[in-house]
Design a binder for these strands. Structure first.
Lengths: 115, 115
DNA sequence: CTCATACGCAACCTCCTGGTTGCCTATCTA
DNA sequence: TAGATAGGCAACCAGGAGGTTGCGTATGAG
């Protein structure tokens, strides 16, 4: 296990899709160092509407990358690291297979002085 | 350097976007262990048209994730690892900031027996 | 109590994405 | 040389993504 490529991909793809937008990445970095932040706080500095930010947060939440909670009239958002690790695993999977293939090729060339 | 968050994000976002599709991820894993492969070979086993695969490859190429070369009438595609590393850096950046923040909070609580 | 603030919901718009089909060209092979 | 194979190009389509505006409702502050 952990070698199940197709499962790792199915987990990774939605996360990557969520990460594939500059605005959303910016939101994540804000959250990574900024504690739980309200939508208004997250919108601040961005050049799109609060509604747009809300939608982006929904996308991130669908991918499991953020979690929300209410405090009074504020909706606070917090980072969730687990999916990021999942994504990293997915990247490593591809990189490792590539390295293994290179090693295999190298072995073929070196270890075989023609039969 | 390497601490420039916004630059890392601008590099990472297009890569993530390219990775955010199961078909494309599958293509990458095929390429990661399968040497340079032709479009026909990459289409084989997939449940979409050759044209669709061609478009996916174009997206991957735009993100720098694959490279192509011609051999006769075949167009061969090969994996390119560099952008994957870029993506990993981007993930690490977020994770690290999060960890640093946690450490900061912990220090605040522990090191401060109320003034 | 009143008003500003923080947010949700819904409608709407435009543009991109993923996919298809049809047709045409180049190359390999029998 | 004829036919199969590998691929490009262009048109087309449905649906989703990202964004906006307008309006309504809680909650907090003065």
């Amino acid at each position: 296990m952990s070698r199940n490529v197709s499962a790792s991909m199915r987990k990774g793809a939605p996360v990557f899709a969520a990460l594939g937008d500059v605005t959303r990445l910016r939101l994540l970095t804000k959250l990574s160092s900024g504690g739980p932040l309200s939508i208004a706080q997250l919108t601040d500095g961005e050049d799109v509407t609060r509604q747009a930010i809300t939608k982006h947060l929904a996308v991130l939440a669908d991918a499991g990358l953020v979690r929300d909670s209410w405090r009074g009239r504020e909706r606070l958002w917090e980072l969730e690291l687990a999916p990021l690790d999942e994504a990293r695993i997915c990247l490593d999977l591809v990189s490792r297979r590539w390295d293994e293939r290179l090693a295999r090729l190298k072995a073929l060339v070196e270890d075989d002085p023609t039969p």
